[in-house]
Design a protein around this nucleic acid. Structure first.
Length: 587
RNA sequence: GCCUCGGUAGCUCAGCCUGGAUAGAGCAUUAGCCUUCUAAGCUAAGGGUCGCAGGUUCAAAUCCUGUCCGGGGCGCCA
């Protein structure tokens, strides 16, 4: 395609010369554009830029130049085959490429490469760690974590598709006052929690509360109690001190609750089809990093306050003053992060580190990366904060401590139940198959909902309007896939194909399939899965239009259309794989 | 106050980087289409000061400046 573009630009250049027009080659390149409208051709050249220099009406220029180009194209056999026609519309010269040749090449390439179609070696020298979703261990995952998981996994897959070696890492924030709150509630109000079902949010199965939900319920109960009795906050702080001193009883309780939380969290992560290669625990590293800070102090990168606390002055970078060690010598959050960032590179010999973390922490990462850079420990260009927007509720932010969160497990369960109803309405299936399909469909709905919005933007999720299954949704994509499959199931062996005249719907589908590589490349460069999500939807939409306009089986063009459907199916499958959405052969 | 992200149809969002021909989808509303490959589908209609004001340009939702509104951040919290 690129070659054709260059060829055309050359022709334009020659034609302009022959007509004695004044022009600038760079201007031609800048104005020459691709188009995705069937009416305006595949490429076009607006001629306004020639108007001033040549003191002529742009329409007139387009007309003359267009004719000259047409003559030129007719002379060249290669171009004659590739360019079907050119049209002049007002000040535009529109080029229509030969779709038959495109169709032939595209379909053959997809059938040859199959699930590897679109793969590139751009990232082959990269070993990249992607860290996500790094939860706190005092509560179960919520919808915000699911967005994080969706983005982290999808980005990992996109990187792998371009041949990067990816290490998926998760950092458990398993220590701190937040855990102590759950622990304190356990000591004081455990019985109350268990005897009063109103305190238990996950009511579906009271006998067997999921372990992380139990810890989370304790946390919510703590907050409730602490409102009435502020003394509790103080006690939680005291507990943290005891924890740090290694108090045996406290440590035992901590281990117990932590393990409950982490077990439950892992179940959810695994249900979401994500598997981590490495787990870090804050409790193991929270005291580390002090040596690095002291070293930096010696080198004059950090400064000491009168009270002995240590800080870095980043005022010249607009980041202000940031403390790194307290006056009692203890670490701060960022101190351990400096340590961990370096550890990742040392342990895994990676050369790129991606942090999938919400945009509320942008300042933190700017500071972190600046410090690592100044210390010459790591280079800024190898560190990337993949920042994404918050998931909000219609009345504002989700707050764990108040219990106003959309719980991940509950959402998956509830969505699954709705899918089951839909399935029962439509098809007769045994219970096991309903279970299997409903989970896949429910997850597709949730994942797609979370990935289709540009990652930079906040999402407003309305729990009252349950997750949709129609229109721009995950199930629509799965449905389109299953539809394509049901056509292909009808034939035993794929015939050879010839391409006759193409209908608009066939051309549109071809052109959209042809866009896949470009979209994928863009999403790799920008680490933005939403581009692929939107592409998958547009592709499916065009397929459904094709489906209605062009019968396949027993049609005159059956052979070609079968191959076209197969190509569509392949591209949609790859797209969905990159979004971590599993497909169903039958809906 | 400073930094940052956003403001496009009633609602949820594409498009903006890299300016181009009538601004696109979905939901919701209305009207159609299932003896033919899966109706979780398709077709059509209505619905727009692209926050506002300037500027650059032959051409601005897109670039620049200012401004208003909203989110987030600016802790020896994590």
């Amino acid at each position: 395609m690129e070659e054709l573009k260059d060829l055309l630009i050359k022709i334009i250049e020659d034609s302009l010369s022959r007509l004695n027009y004044i022009f600038d080659i760079e201007e031609i390149k800048a104005n020459f554009q691709e188009s995705d409208s069937l009416n305006f051709g595949d490429y076009s050249l607006p001629c306004f830029f020639l108007s001033k220099k040549n003191i002529k009406n742009p329409n007139e220029i387009a007309l003359k130049l267009g004719k000259e180009i047409e003559k030129e194209i007719k002379k060249d056999k290669n171009l004659r085959e590739k360019i079907e026609k050119i049209e002049i519309k007002n000040s535009y010269i529109n080029f229509f490429i030969n779709k038959k040749e495109l169709a032939f090449n595209l379909i053959n390439e997809i059938e040859k490469k199959k699930e590897d179609y679109g793969k590139e070696n751009l990232g082959k020298n990269n070993k990249t760690m992607v860290e996500f979703p790094s939860p706190n261990t005092n509560k179960p995952l919520h919808l915000g974590h699911l967005r994080n998981l969706s983005i982290g996994e999808s980005v990992s897959r996109i990187l792998e598709f371009y041949n990067e070696k990816v290490i998926r890492a998760n950092l458990y924030n398993d220590r701190g006052v937040h855990i102590c709150k759950s622990m304190l509630a356990y000591q004081k109000f455990k019985d109350e929690l268990e005897n009063n079902s109103e305190n238990i949010k996950n009511k579906k199965d009271k006998e067997k509360i999921k372990s992380d939900h139990f810890v989370g319920d304790l946390y919510v109960l703590f907050s409730k109690k602490a409102k009435e009795n502020p003394e509790l906050e103080k006690q939680a702080q005291e507990m943290l001190v005891k924890w740090e001193q290694g108090d045996k009883e406290i440590r035992e309780l901590w281990k117990k609750l932590n393990s409950m939380a982490i077990t439950g969290i892992k179940e959810t992560i695994s249900l979401f089809n994500v598997k981590h290669d490495k787990e870090y625990f804050e409790s193991n590293i929270y005291e580390k990093g002090r040596e690095i800070i002291l070293e930096g102090l010696k080198n004059g990168i950090f400064k000491k306050e009168n009270d002995n606390s240590i800080y870095i002055d980043l005022t010249n970078k607009g980041l202000g003053k940031k403390y790194l060690l307290r006056n009692d010598g203890t670490s701060i959050y960022i101190t351990q992060d400096i340590y961990l960032s370096k550890l990742k590179f040392d342990e895994f010999k990676i050369n790129k580190s991606i942090y999938v973390v919400g945009n509320e922490q942008e300042y933190h990462f700017k500071v972190l990366f600046s410090i690592l850079d100044k210390l010459k420990l790591l280079k800024k260009e190898n560190l990337y904060h993949l920042s994404y927007g918050m998931v909000n509720l219609p009345d504002g932010k989700m707050k764990s401590r108040e219990g106003t969160v959309v719980d991940a497990d509950d959402l998956i369960d509830e969505t699954k139940e709705l899918v089951k109803e839909e399935l029962k309405k439509r098809y007769i299936l045994d219970e096991k198959e309903i279970e299997r399909r409903s989970l896949i469909i429910a997850l597709s709905a949730i994942k797609y909902m979370l990935l289709k919005t540009n990652i930079k933007r906040d999402i407003t999720f309305n729990p009252k309007e349950s997750i949709a299954f129609e229109g721009d949704t995950g199930p629509y994509l799965l449905y389109s896939y299953a539809r394509a499959n049901s056509i292909l199931k009808k034939i035993k062996k794929l015939p050879e194909f010839k391409i006759k005249d193409l209908k608009d719907e066939e051309i549109k589908l071809l052109l959209k399939i042809n866009e896949f590589k470009k979209t994928l490349n863009e999403s790799y460069k920008t680490l933005n899965p939403s581009l692929i999500a939107n592409y998958a939807y547009q592709l499916s939409k065009i397929f459904n239009e094709f489906y209605h306009a062009c019968p396949v089986i027993n049609s005159e063009n059956e052979d070609f259309r079968l191959h076209l459907v197969l190509a569509f199916k392949q591209i949609l499958k790859i797209s969905l794989y990159l979004l971590n959405i599993e497909v169903l052969e039958e809906m």
